[in-house]
Design a binder for these strands. Structure first.
Lengths: 118, 118
DNA sequence: ACCATACGTGCTCATGTACGCACGCGACGA
DNA sequence: TCGTCGCGTGCGTACATGAGCACGTATGGT
């Protein structure tokens, strides 16, 4: 009933992680900190999509979506593949999926009622 | 072997969540998108801390830490309590802990070797 | 009452970034 | 070869944000 290496059990939180890890995590979070990118990633978690389809679904100009996809690609969150004259993107890594679902669940808790269960 | 309501199983990712949820999630991610706030939250996940101690441990000016704590408090990620002339902050909600650990794990994967296991 | 401590706030400066438009480039089809 | 379609890029603009200084405020000790 103690030290499940999980949520509580303050052991791990005592000392700060190395700066490189912190900055890398911050960078990942910054990629998730934009509604448009969030929607793009959400759709990409469901399967492959080309830029035009994404731009249409997230209701944004294609250049904007392209820029977002470029950033996401640089960060390694998505991967690109050519199909004819289109470029098809897909989500990359299970971490993104878990972070998205966790955030959406938190948002739901934050909106429906109780701010959070402490 | 299908529909575990988990990572894959594209069902849930087909349609975008409501805008309110997306923006709320983006806001939460924006709070986590800064190295200083990330460090502060990390320490607060391990227990209560006052502003001065936090400023000392994260190596930042006290006013800066205070501003960050204000934002985190507005977002509901941390809570404050008065103890004498100090103000003691604590983390609030298990979502933050899970997001932090998930992000740190992802950062570790991203740094040590394989960018990610697709 | 006076001083010291611990926070919070207003402010400015510098930086980062999202958006959309116009353009250039590569890939198909006639 | 020429026209069309789909993407990416270089701008400029408008906006949000982080850092630190100086100051105001509240609490507790002498």
């Amino acid at each position: 009933m103690y030290a499940r290496d999980d949520s509580a059990s303050a052991e791990a939180w005592q000392r700060l992680p190395e700066s490189e890890h912190v900055e890398a995590a911050a960078e990942s979070f910054r990629m998730l900190a934009d509604p448009t990118r969030l929607r793009i990633l959400w759709l990409l978690c469901g399967g492959e999509h080309d830029v035009g389809t994404l731009a249409e679904k997230v209701v944004a100009a294609r250049p904007s979506v392209s820029q977002h996809l470029a950033k996401l690609r640089m960060t390694g969150l998505v991967a690109a593949r050519r199909d004819g004259r289109r470029v098809v993107y897909r989500a990359r890594g299970g971490h993104v999926r878990r972070l998205l679902r966790e955030a959406m669940e938190a948002a739901d808790h934050h909106l429906t009622g109780a701010p959070d269960h402490n």
